[in-house]
Nucleic acid binder design. Structure first.
Lengths: 347, 347
DNA sequence: TGGCTTGCTGTTACCGGTAACTCGCGCAAT
DNA sequence: ATTGCGCGAGTTACCGGTAACAGCAAGCCA
């Protein structure tokens, strides 16, 4: 049904190849012929078959993106930034969500590798389990890690120093006078582990004792933050200051607190991480650690395109670390004047 | 580099076709042969080339989704619902954002039609301009409209009755005692037009005069709601009650109000539409009109899959309209007791 | 005039699958 | 013994592009 190169060729009386060359702006063709072909192509509403093209050239001009959670606006911002680079470069995005699930992530990755030129992954994998990815990279898979990285993996990556994230958040709470500081510690992913490590380092630096029962397991989803805080509230005394592994979990925790009449910033000092879009507009504006989602996405996209175009030295993959800043709002109890929060550059 | 059917065939000493049949569970093959093939395929880590398959079968198992705004969590919820249906059916999603831009939407649609089996579109087009889509559908394009529909287009669609949305919101404000009700009226899209129409109908029904200067042009993005309200505040008196075309614009307007010391729910009664995720958690929880994003996405996905599988009667495309409810929170000034808001079924 | 570029176009084969048809063989029925 | 049938596997062609090479006329120089 759709028009093919052959149809156009027949119509004008030239070969398929000539038409192909005209369409692709190949210089080995006279400008009159090209003009004629393009005119007819337009008239017949020719649309190249992308699958055929991909099969012949082994390039699909598709980039796969795997994020852990579509409902986390943090990733929406990163994707938007990715798109701002890939789109002008002629790539389209195949976006998938792993829903913070390892098995699902692996499924997605394997499916996407077949149909894309490369992947941008925010991986849910624990930092130790790099085997599957190691293998894929050895087999020539082109991928870039973003936000959630695996240090031992020889693969370009864009992230923040998550140990530093944990330290900044915890130190801020210590500075506010708190001595018993709790932590909602996320899952087994590298981000969670690193932020937890930063939390411990901050305590150690100020000679505060690390208490195991001040740390609660919790996922990275808002719903998980909510559940974690609910059970914490039900089971024991909750500390007066808490660093939550990320903004969604902090927001979930905040909700659970409100349900029992506790208010963040007054009864419990709360700090998150990620600076998601609605953080400043919440009932209690969220104090958080911030970094540029735009730089994150744009850098990741550029790195991947370099990989795809073969313009990067694959011997030593580039790792980009983004600078952090502390954004002080009300949830930590240090009332900020400006609505948008006081920003303190760091690291 | 990657393993192909031919490699496996050579390895075992059978034909490509036999391998293909084994992989695709074709019954015309002995179970011993199949077992042997599958074993070798697994051992060699065979991954079928999707482009070749798509070229040969004219099926890509890709579904394109075009939404107006990735940062609007409303659409994140819809996409998630779409995925919950398409994924088990074996399709992957190619997600694009039109950024509320007509030209860009058309670009995306044309690009996606080439590589997908069908599209789910939340169209930014004004309801009158249906020509491009009409043509594509005539040419056999498979598409389903979601949320933003075009009534004159013969194409399956899932949406709400947006006139009703405008009426419910406006009537609620009237019920609260307001007589001069303003409206942030969105753009030229059908949703905006319909909600505006509902606003006017509600006024007419209560014999309230429609005042042109109580209606302000505004887009559907949060930033546009913010800008619209800012200039409104700068230029003239803002009415004591406002129906904003959707939640993001309402939230943007709320921010602009806060900047000049006005508080939604106290100084100005504000109602949005869409019930986005953070609506209940905002500094001033947002009163809104709600409908199921889950049903919306799931229905749209099912309709499209029916279209693709050829199981639907394409003569009369199905239109699904979702029921509405009013969710009363604080921004309208009617203080609700429960945090989650009072829900009133309607329509 | 012959040989050599140069510039444009055509030919052939191939990318990696699949549809549709063909073929050979064993076995039951005639 | 012949026929017919069904099963399992192979052959061939094609999906719609593109790479690589071949061909061919005009133009230039010796």
């Amino acid at each position: 049904m759709p028009v093919t190169l052959a149809d156009i060729a027949r119509e004008i009386g030239v070969s398929k190849m000539t038409v192909s060359r005209a369409i692709n702006n190949n210089p080995l063709i006279s400008s009159e012929t090209r003009a004629r072909v393009l005119e007819v192509a337009r008239r017949m509403n020719y649309q190249p078959n992308q699958h055929a093209r991909a099969l012949a050239t082994n390039r699909s001009y598709l980039i796969g993106v795997i994020v852990p959670d579509l409902m986390n606006l943090y990733f929406a911002e990163v994707m938007r930034a990715i798109e701002s680079i890939t789109r002008p470069a002629g790539f389209q995005l195949l976006i998938c969500s792993s829903d913070e699930d390892i098995t699902r992530e692996l499924d997605e990755v394997e499916a996407l590798l077949q149909r894309t030129d490369g992947l941008i992954i925010s991986s849910v994998f624990p930092p130790t389990e790099t085997k599957p990815y190691r293998k894929m990279i050895k087999d020539g898979a082109k991928m870039v890690l973003v936000d959630r990285t695996m240090k031992q993996l020889s693969c370009p990556a864009v992230a923040t120093d998550n140990v530093q994230v944990g330290r900044l958040a915890t130190e801020h709470l210590i500075r506010l006078g708190h001595r018993r500081i709790g932590h909602l510690r996320g899952d087994g992913s590298s981000v969670s582990a690193d932020r937890f490590e930063g939390y411990k380092q901050a305590l150690a630096k100020r000679k505060l004792r690390f208490e195991k029962n001040l740390v609660r397991e919790c996922g990275l989803l808002e719903s998980e933050g909510y559940e974690a805080m609910r059970s914490w509230l039900a089971e024991s005394e909750v500390p007066k200051a808490i660093f939550a592994v990320n903004d969604p979990s902090a927001i979930g925790a905040m909700q659970a607190m409100e349900e029992v009449g506790l208010r963040a910033g007054k009864d419990v000092a709360l700090v998150g991480a990620g600076n998601i879009h609605y953080g400043a507009m919440l009932r209690v504006p969220l104090t958080t650690i911030s970094w540029s989602r735009r730089d994150m996405g744009q850098n990741a996209a550029s790195l991947l395109i370099q990989l795809i175009e073969g313009k990067s030295d694959s011997a030593k993959p580039q790792h980009i670390t983004l600078p952090l800043e502390l954004v002080i709002r009300e949830s930590c109890g240090a009332r900020a004047k400006a609505t948008s929060g006081t920003r303190t550059a760091a690291s």
